[in-house]
Design a protein around this nucleic acid. Structure first.
Lengths: 138, 138
DNA sequence: ATGATTTTGGTACTTTAGTATGACACTCCA
DNA sequence: TGGAGTGTCATACTAAAGTACCAAAATCAT
């Protein structure tokens, strides 16, 4: 948040400087008005694009990124969440076991706990609920 | 596509008009240079925002909507796609059967065909692939 | 250090999921 | 009218998934 304020302050100062600069460079007769107007137009166009893209990506991030607090609220441990992610990728218990270098029994235990904590009957339902809770994004 | 070209043509013409107008109104001495520069800056800032928002929403629509052509390409029938959607919601075969008023055997048949056509080994993998192929959005 | 949690793993069992195969009715199109 | 494709359903089977219960480590905070 502090960074945002800083960036925008710097941006406004830069624009005001540009503003003054263009005025004086015109008054000193070294540049034509067309050039100044074109320059101003380009700069503000770029600023507009930048400004808009910024707010857009921020909005997207809010809805797409997972917040760890919700995972903690559900009582999901680090490993359980890890397993949940692999489940959501469509892997079988065996495949997850091989990927994480543990036995299939272990994965079954983890999955069972995840199902309990997400109040799901099946892994497919767990995927759905995890998405609704915004702890995974696919 | 035609509409896009039209809109941008109109936009460019409007901007060029504004450009000329500002030059002449300055030469005629009726307006100060500060006002003109400020006006130009505001207009181009707005254009930048508009321009960027446009390309952003277009991209989002492309990635969020499903196109029926891809479903046809995969050889998925209407019913099979319907079952796939229910599967992706996390329902069991039995639950889907009850929802669609058919037997569980029927759902199993459909699911098996869907797995074949999506080249998936499990329903969770089918969900993943369907998402990648952009025939479901969750 | 010790109690709590996490991670790991096993056995034994039940339930879903998925495959293979065959069959019958319906629709649509050539 | 006779296939091609679709939708339905069944049986029999194999393979995963999931539950219950237990237990030994490793980790971690007080």
């Amino acid at each position: 948040m502090k960074r945002t304020v800083f960036i925008f302050s710097a941006l406004i100062i830069a624009l005001l400087s540009l503003f003054q600069l263009s005025k004086y460079s015109y008054l000193s007769g070294s540049t034509s008005i067309e050039m100044i107007i074109a320059l101003i137009a380009m700069v503000f166009f770029a600023v507009g694009v930048f400004f808009n893209k910024r707010s857009f990506t921020e909005k997207n991030n809010l809805s797409k990124e997972v917040d760890p607090s919700r995972i903690a609220q559900l009582g999901l441990s680090k490993r359980e969440y890890e397993v949940l992610l692999e489940v959501s990728k469509g892997l079988s218990n065996k495949e997850i076991a091989d990927k994480l270098f543990v036995s299939e029994s272990t994965i079954k235990t983890h999955v069972s706990k995840v199902l309990l904590k997400l109040d799901a009957k099946r892994r497919t339902q767990a995927i759905q609920k995890a998405k609704e809770l915004q702890i995974i994004h696919l």
